[in-house]
Simulated scan of single mutants.
Amino acid sequence: MRFRRVVLALAGAAVLATGTTTLLPATAQARIMAVACDETSLITAVNAANAAGGGTVTLTAGCTYTLTAAHGNDGVNGPTGLPIITTPITLEGNANTITRSSASVFRIAQVSTTGDLTLKAVTLSGGHAATNGGGILNFGAVTLTGSELSNNAADGTGGGIYSTGGAAGATFTSSNVKNNTAHQAAGIANDRGTLALTSSVVSGNAAAINPGGIYHVAGSATLDNSAVSANTPTNCTGSPSPVPGCTG
């Protein structure tokens, strides 16, 4: 397909155009346009954005990006499909899915304490972590807008997302966390971070032990016009700290 011309957010960015990556001094964020619908192009684009100090990666409309191997590993928390997010990166989607298709076990995304991942109209699906965070393991900031975490699995905690640490924040707006599995907290696990859901749904998640929907240890959790329902064995009951507005 024909790629649009790369538009730099500021001078000195790393850019990707027509399948070619150009690395310039990492002094500003990049806007990486029209990433081709394949694994290699997506990984190259995320690496380029990290190297540029962050940026926006625009995905091919309607594309499913299938990850066949892990491209990130901090040596502690296990492998991750995408390169570890260490800078502010937005995945600008349009009915996109990023999924795992491999015999290997790896989550889809990991966000470091310096990272900030924003998903717009993007679904993360099929991740599998041997530890925590099947879809996303978050130590920094994660924002989902019109997006979804679905059909991810964690052998530990947080099938959809595990957000942990005082620097961790997870914000969901008009987004879904559905049909994930885990030993505990198949939907969302928030451990000492900040969790906020607005006009969002946490549903159909299944854990081995309480709770199945949202596990909230400490920090803050708010639900605004959001539904937590049909999770097993419970929605939020069994969390060390109550989830305001979540029952059952």
Rank of each mutant, 00 (worst) to 15 (best):
S101P: 04
T58W: 01
A121F: 00
A130V: 10
P88K: 12
N138C: 09
L91I: 02
N73S: 11
V122P: 01
A130N: 09
L119N: 09
V57W: 00
A121G: 00
T86Y: 10
G134F: 04
S125N: 04
N151M: 13
A45G: 11
G72C: 11
L82P: 06
T90M: 07
T131V: 06
N132L: 05
L67V: 03
L144D: 12
A34M: 14
T131I: 07
K120Q: 03
T64C: 01
D38F: 07
V46N: 01
S101C: 05
N151A: 15
C37A: 15
A61H: 05
G54D: 03
L124M: 09
L124P: 12
T44K: 15
A153W: 05
L91N: 02
A121D: 10
L82T: 06
V57S: 00
C37R: 11
G127F: 10
G53N: 02
N47A: 08
G134P: 05
G53M: 02
I108V: 15
N73H: 07
N138D: 12
A129G: 04
S41V: 12
S41K: 14
N73Q: 05
L119I: 07
N138Y: 05
T80R: 06
E39F: 06
V142Y: 03
G53S: 01
V111L: 05
T97F: 09
G134W: 04
R107E: 06
G134E: 02
E92V: 02
L119W: 07
I98S: 05
L67M: 07
L42E: 09
A34F: 14
T66K: 08
